[in-house]
Amino acid sequence: MPRVADAPAPSRLHPLSLLIAVAIMLVCTLYPPLMVAPDGKADHGLAMALFTAMSVAFVRGVGFVPRARAWRWLFSGWTCFASLAVAGWVKFLH
């Protein structure tokens, strides 16, 4: 049987990514003051970085790997790490 070059790899769960996504979801849901700026208003930059990391981690965590290279890069662990780093940097600045 000939092998198809674009055949997707079998999907498998990524427990660490899934754990990160669930942790971000629970922390942001149970403790929303985490995403408040010092002036008492919502910190939209921090929220965007955290929710981007959460979304990427959920997609990666359930084992979905897109075929297109750009989407694969966007939903990679590196993007999740970069988003978490941005969130930490934004929180540190406040």
Results as ranks from 00 to 15, higher is better:
Met1Phe: 04
Pro2Gly: 10
Pro2Phe: 10
Val4Leu: 15
Val4Trp: 15
Asp6Val: 13
Asp6Ser: 13
Asp6Trp: 14
Ala9Arg: 09
Ser11Pro: 14
Ser11Thr: 13
Ser11Asp: 13
Ser11His: 12
Leu13Met: 12
Leu13Asn: 05
Pro15Lys: 03
Leu16Ala: 11
Leu16Tyr: 05
Leu18Trp: 13
Leu19Asp: 13
Thr29Asp: 10
Tyr31Phe: 13
Tyr31Asn: 13
Leu34Glu: 04
Met35Lys: 04
Met35Glu: 07
Met35Leu: 13
Ala37Met: 03
Asp39Ala: 04
Asp39Arg: 04
Asp39Met: 00
Gly40Ala: 02
Ala42Trp: 07
Asp43His: 09
His44Asn: 15
His44Phe: 12
Ala47Trp: 10
Ala47Pro: 02
Ala47Ser: 14
Met48Asn: 13
Met48Lys: 13
Ala49Met: 06
Phe51Leu: 05
Ala53His: 05
Met54Asn: 00
Met54Pro: 00
Met54Tyr: 00
Ser55Thr: 12
Ala57Leu: 03
Phe58Asn: 03
Arg60His: 12
Gly61Ser: 06
Val62Ile: 15
Val62Ala: 06
Gly63Asp: 08
Pro66Asn: 06
Pro66Lys: 02
Ala68Thr: 08
Leu74Gln: 07
Ser76Phe: 01
Trp78Met: 11
Thr79Asp: 04
Cys80Lys: 03
Ala82Asp: 01
Ser83Glu: 00
Ser83Ile: 02
Ala85Ile: 04
Gly88Asn: 02
Trp89Val: 08
Trp89His: 06
Trp89Arg: 06
Val90Asp: 05
Phe92Ile: 14
Leu93Asn: 02
